[in-house]
Design a binder for these strands. Structure first.
Length: 455
RNA sequence: GGCGCGGUAGCCAAGUGGUAAGGCCGAGGUCUGCAAAACCUCUAUGCGCCGGUUCAAUUCCGGCCCGCGCCUCCA
């Protein structure tokens, strides 16, 4: 089955195919800036990309996919954070890289094959800027910064269809851009940023003086190093469309003289309470915020996949409740299925939906239809294949069971004794007492357990 | 101002020129003393509003209203 994905550049839904003789599929996914915990909006993008990775593995073979996702570990934000905390840049980025990895693991995202860092690829970036300088696509400003000359690349604006707009916005931009005075044109962007006092020790030598790389160049340099000059798929959130990806195309194609990426895919934003998340609105959640409320990471993953990846998804705590319940249904369904010997075709529509431009909500629809209408034909092996594609783990939720207070435990013991003695009137009365105390008693044949009452 | 996206049941959310997937919640039921769990059934004559095209529109076209995103660091 061919994987079809919308291509932001051609605005068509196109098939994914490896382009080179080695049959390797080259996949680059723009990663996070590691200066704080990633929020659930970031994770929507990473979870969606994880499903792409999984589909590629399923279709092309595990060894035929090379997935690269970078870590931006030097930029204004990381440097600022380090300065505020009086720590080294490396200490700050290490802390948040570790946290990012832990969160990704909790969300069952497959680790990329290579996770390059900007600071680990200064040489490659400098080399690339050097080529751009020599080819006349870049210039050194009086302060020692190097800028990419946007007018030197005629296709600039093709991805974001932004060309005309630039002129109109020129005046406004000029007034706000910090480096407006240094640039020849407001649309030009930094390849190399000359060292400033607030950068501290975070500077490297270059032919143009000490400084640090601009943000966009890292992806161009790192994808070239690890995947080659032309890659098969480049992805990220919509906000990266402009200027980040537009700039990457300009740099890479001017430097290498060939197509940078054959396919572009952008996932839409997660909204919280109908708005884009932001600290100022106070609607920004991290994974930890949600687990602290008792939700499982898997429920978040499920909730993030409930909407079509190319449509804004409005996240609410209610959607997390729905996700937990749906997961529970899938979990108990799987437990009752035979290991093998079913009819795998029953679940084909699920994979078909995923292959059709990553239609995750339709995939869930097909999944539930299948297990309700053809339950007897589904076996665990084919079911697990679907779970793999979606990246769902159905292990029992690891939420630690709350310990009942001794008074409650005593009531429960009393009720169990009454029940054993078939004194149901007393048993029922005690159940009510337990409920009043906020606890629910779950009977089994051979014993019982206590759970805090759900609100 | 420019570019783009969306408005489908209480909530979330697919989808199609021929009469609305699925999840959650809710209701009823089966099964267990009760409860819980599990399973089964039910839940939009309707798809923002107004026109148009058509034998037929939620689906195409036009207008309008509302919401959101990008254009500046941003997944």
């Amino acid at each position: 089955m061919a994987i079809k994905l919308f291509d932001s550049l051609t605005r068509e839904t196109r098939e994914l195919q490896p382009s080179q003789p080695d049959g390797l599929y080259r996949f680059y996914n723009c990663g996070p800036t590691v200066y704080a915990p990633a929020h659930i909006g970031n994770f929507r993008t990473f979870v969606i990309n994880d499903v792409i990775r999984r589909l590629l593995e399923l279709d092309f073979g595990k060894e035929k996919v090379k997935h690269v996702r970078n870590l931006t570990d030097v930029d204004d934000k990381t440097i600022k954070r380090a300065r505020e905390e009086g720590r080294s840049l490396a200490a700050v980025t290490k802390q948040w890289t570790d946290k990012f990895h832990a969160d990704c693991a909790a969300l069952n995202c497959l680790p990329p094959h290579i996770e390059p860092t900007a600071t680990g690829h200064i040489r490659e970036q400098v080399d690339m800027i050097d080529v751009l300088m020599r080819k006349g696509h870049a210039y050194r400003a009086p302060d020692g910064s190097v800028y990419f000359k946007v007018t030197s690349f005629e296709s600039y604006g093709r991805l974001s269809r932004v060309k005309e707009r630039e002129l109109q916005l020129g005046a406004a931009l000029k007034a706000t851009a910090a480096d407006a005075d240094e640039k020849e044109d407001v649309s030009d962007f930094a390849l190399w940023k000359a060292h400033k006092d607030e950068d501290g020790d975070n500077a490297w030598d270059s032919p143009w003086g000490r400084g640090r790389p601009g943000w966009h160049i890292e992806c161009s340099a790192m994808s070239k190093k690890h995947l080659g000059e032309t890659i098969d798929l480049h992805t990220g959130g919509v906000d990266l469309l402009f200027p980040h990806h537009e700039n990457e195309i300009a740099q890479s194609e001017c430097c290498n003289g060939r197509t940078f990426s054959r396919h572009w895919y952008h996932s839409e934003h997660l909204l919280v309470d109908g708005k884009k998340m932001s600290k100022s609105l106070g609607n920004l959640y991290t994974l930890d915020d949600l687990t602290a409320k008792g939700f499982s990471p898997m429920a978040l993953r499920y909730a993030l996949l409930m909407g079509h990846p190319r449509k804004q998804l409005n996240f609410t705590l209610d959607s997390l409740h729905a996700a937990e319940s749906a997961l529970k249904t899938l979990r108990s369904f799987r437990a009752t299925q035979k290991p093998t010997g079913g009819d795998a075709s029953v679940l084909e529509p699920v994979l078909a939906a995923l292959h059709d431009d990553l239609n995750t909500p339709a995939a869930f629809g097909a999944l539930f239809s299948a297990i309700h209408q053809h339950a007897a034909k589904v076996d665990q092996a084919s079911f697990d294949r679907i779970l793999f594609a979606l990246g769902l783990k159905l292990d029992e939720a690891a939420a630690p069971k709350a310990e009942a207070p001794t008074a409650v435990a005593a009531l429960a013991a009393k009720r169990w004794a009454a029940k054993q003695a078939k004194d149901f009137a007393t048993a029922d009365a005690l159940r009510k007492e337990l409920a009043a105390a906020g606890w629910s008693m779950l009977d089994r044949k051979d014993g019982y357990s206590l759970e805090p009452l759900k609100k």
